[in-house]
Nucleic acid binder design. Structure first.
Length: 473
DNA sequence: TACGGAAACG
DNA sequence: CGTTTCCGTA
């Protein structure tokens, strides 16, 4: 059934070890709301994924304003998308239709006048992915949404730098303020409820471990070393990995262990409040298998960032957090902290996997360019296996697997981790120097969790959250 | 090149 | 619901 196509990017990240780790988007993030079965990757997730990887800069890259990206090679992007979705006949025309479909949802909008150029409304994106976090923490996002959505500027740029800063504590402007986490954690109630991780997503990238957050690290690294406080990077490759394809290849990077521990790992990676949620014994580092090596002393991928205790969220502009959004109060579900934790855990998986391998992967960009598409074996990189893409592809061999090759430069990736690279987001203007982190409280090594089964409850919870997201819009 | 309606699909 | 596919229009 489904596609084994699996993906590409995810499963075989071009740069495995480096990136990694972490936690990626929680599963639920991908989730289509409550719908049980379907959780395919969404196009915008995919776009973000590509955007995040340097290898694809020749194909698609951040350019222009915040959130703005250019599809440099439409056919290639379409091809990759087709691979991912097991739609051999995908082409830019179709892909762009899907993109247009995002206009109404305000996830994306077209940058007029610039060919193949679109712009993300990150605020929206975030919401979608991290329904759990409460916006309260990040007023900007909300604000943004409103702004955007509002009549004001339709086009407008979604998340502004300022907003980002608010999101990222480290950013200068953020100053310090109340921490997001605290709030969330503290109050499960109305506020807590729906926490939208919005805040986190971007935050998420752990400095040490992950790549950059979306906007921050764009192609153009502005500030070299920018650490992210939390190691949670939704946009990491790993993040995406799971979702689509239910079945992972046996040896796939993300193995099963991935799931089990997710919770723990996730939590551990989460910022303080969350991490605290972990049961005492859990934390562990299991996950990762390794990736990195460092297993011993430090958890490689787990980067738990220091808790930014004092960041400000910037509630400023909006008046406070809350407000802007109208409903926040209402709908929320209270999610007890515990619940939250669970929820987060669920998805996050990742783990580490990072594959240690390391093999190399090469950049697509070069790959076939001259030849533009042949459906045949080109799949190059991405595809791991298409064994079966569902029905449609049957016929078409278009994607056959290729595999990726070679490696590429990963060295820079390393750097990236530290600061610069690949972030998902578009370049932000100025990044701040790192702030001094607070010691995170529960960082320590995690111990293995009991058995984590993310329980159903979690699942359910996710659903709830989902709703929110919807609501938000 | 871009847009959006409409139908269909999983 | 989120596309995928097809298509007419600008």
């Amino acid at each position: 059934m489904d596609c084994n196509c699996v993906s590409d990017l995810l499963l075989t990240p071009p740069v495995p070890a480096l990136w990694t780790p972490g936690i990626a988007f929680p599963e639920w993030a991908y989730k289509p709301e409550s719908s049980p079965g379907s959780r395919q990757i969404q196009l915008w997730h995919f776009i973000l994924e590509l955007l995040q990887k340097e290898e694809y800069q020749g194909v698609i890259a951040w350019q222009g304003d915040y959130g703005e990206f250019v599809i440099k090679d439409p056919d290639e992007v379409a091809r990759l998308w087709g691979i991912r979705k097991c739609k051999p006949h995908m082409n830019y025309d179709k892909l762009s239709r899907a993109l247009r479909y995002y206009y109404n949802k305000r996830i994306l909008h077209k940058t007029k006048g610039k060919r193949f150029t679109y712009k993300f409304n990150f605020s929206k994106v975030v919401l979608v992915n991290y329904p759990l976090l409460d916006m309260a923490s990040s007023p900007f996002l909300l604000a943004q949404n409103h702004f955007n959505g509002g009549a004001a500027t339709p086009d407008c740029s979604p998340v502004t730098p300022e907003a980002l800063q608010t999101l990222f504590p480290r950013l200068p402007e953020s100053g310090r303020g109340p921490s997001l986490f605290e709030r969330n954690a503290g109050a499960p109630g109305p506020d807590g409820d729906k926490l939208r991780l919005d805040t986190f997503p971007f935050l998420g990238s752990g400095a040490p471990c992950y790549s950059k957050p979306p906007s921050l690290l764009g192609p153009y690294p502005r500030s070299p070393s920018f650490d992210y406080p939390w190691g949670f990077n939704p946009y990491l490759p790993g993040a995406f990995s799971l979702n689509n394809c239910p079945k992972l290849p046996p040896g796939s990077l993300y193995s099963s262990h991935f799931y089990p521990n997710q919770l723990q790992s996730s939590l551990s990676q989460l910022p303080h409040p969350f991490s605290s949620l972990l049961p005492p014994g859990d934390a562990a580092g299991t996950e990762r298998g390794g990736t990195n090596g460092s297993a011993g002393g430090q958890p490689p991928r787990l980067c738990i960032p220091p808790y930014p205790g004092s960041l400000s969220l910037g509630r400023t502009e909006l008046g406070n957090g809350g407000t802007g959004v109208g409903d926040r109060e209402r709908g929320e579900i209270g999610v007890p902290a515990g619940a939250l934790g669970l929820g987060l855990g669920l998805g996050l998986g990742l783990g580490g996997v990072t594959v240690g391998s390391g093999g190399g992967h090469q950049s697509p960009s070069e790959r076939r360019k001259g030849v533009k598409q042949d459906p045949e074996s080109d799949s190059e990189l991405e595809i791991t296996d298409l064994s079966d893409c569902s029905s449609e592809n049957e016929n078409e061999p278009d994607f056959s697997l290729g595999k990726e090759p070679v490696l590429g430069a990963r060295s820079h990736l390393l750097e990236a981790k530290s600061g610069g690279l690949g972030g998902i987001l578009p370049p932000l203007s100025s990044l701040p120097p790192a702030v001094s982190p607070h010691p995170l409280k529960s960082l320590g090594p995690l111990t293995p969790p009991p058995s984590l089964s993310p329980s159903l409850s979690m699942v359910e919870r996710h659903r709830e959250t989902d709703t929110l997201k919807v609501a938000h819009s």
